[in-house]
Design a protein around this nucleic acid. Structure first.
Length: 191
DNA sequence: CCCTGATTCGC
DNA sequence: GCGAATCAGG
């Protein structure tokens, strides 16, 4: 693969949006995150600034022959308001029966199709898992962390499972169980 | 261990 | 110019 105009453009776009190098690499395909980072640097946009046309900001103070000169300008640059949703969209039914039934002022909570007729076992398992869940935040989600949301997004009582995913799947074993229903038992529940 | 970006350097 | 290897840190 080579850096065509389009690919570079996407790279720039994603990078400026705060996407990680690995994500960009996967999106582009055919390149590793190292390639992406290398390109980013060559393009001279290592700093996710963008904005101000001519901002001569940093001037590498030093650059020894080959010491461990590290510069970690870890700036809280990340955008506070995500423009585009990351790779998170699962909004399965909260299997927590003991969930508070608070109904905030008109909030998108309704989509809770009630605890379907999911395997009682799986349900129990999930409730168990919720106790061991790592309770990670949105930003901590990766390709290998269970993205099962728990709780009410409009409350402090909200987090993602975060346990190791079942290779390939977006959820951990327990959540995969309730996330992907064979659509059998819930068949023709005409009512 | 998982991940992140940064840098070096042979190609 | 490219990117794997390596490094440094969370």
């Amino acid at each position: 693969m080579s850096w065509t105009d389009e690919r570079v453009e996407l790279l720039k776009k994603m990078w400026s949006e705060g996407q990680s190098a690995s994500q960009i690499a996967k999106e582009l395909g055919g390149v590793t995150r190292n390639a992406v980072i290398g390109k980013v640097h060559r393009l001279g946009l290592s700093n996710r600034a963008g904005g101000g046309g001519s901002s001569k900001a940093d001037a590498k103070p030093k650059a020894e022959a080959k010491p461990k000169a590290k510069a970690q300008p870890k700036q809280p640059a990340a955008a506070p308001q995500p423009k585009t949703e990351p790779a998170v969209k699962p909004v399965p039914a909260s299997a927590s029966p003991a969930r508070k039934q608070i109904i905030p002022a008109g909030q998108p909570l309704p989509p809770q199709p009630s605890a379907n007729e999911i395997s009682p076992e799986a349900l129990a398992k999930v409730n168990e898992v919720e106790k061991k869940a790592k309770k990670i935040s949105l930003m901590e989600l990766t390709e290998r962390t269970c993205k099962w949301p728990v709780g009410d997004p409009a409350t402090e009582d909200f987090w993602f499972c975060g346990l190791p995913t079942q290779t390939g799947k977006p959820y951990c074993e327990a959540h995969v169980g309730v996330a992907f229903q064979p659509m059998s038992s819930r068949r023709d529940r005409r009512r």
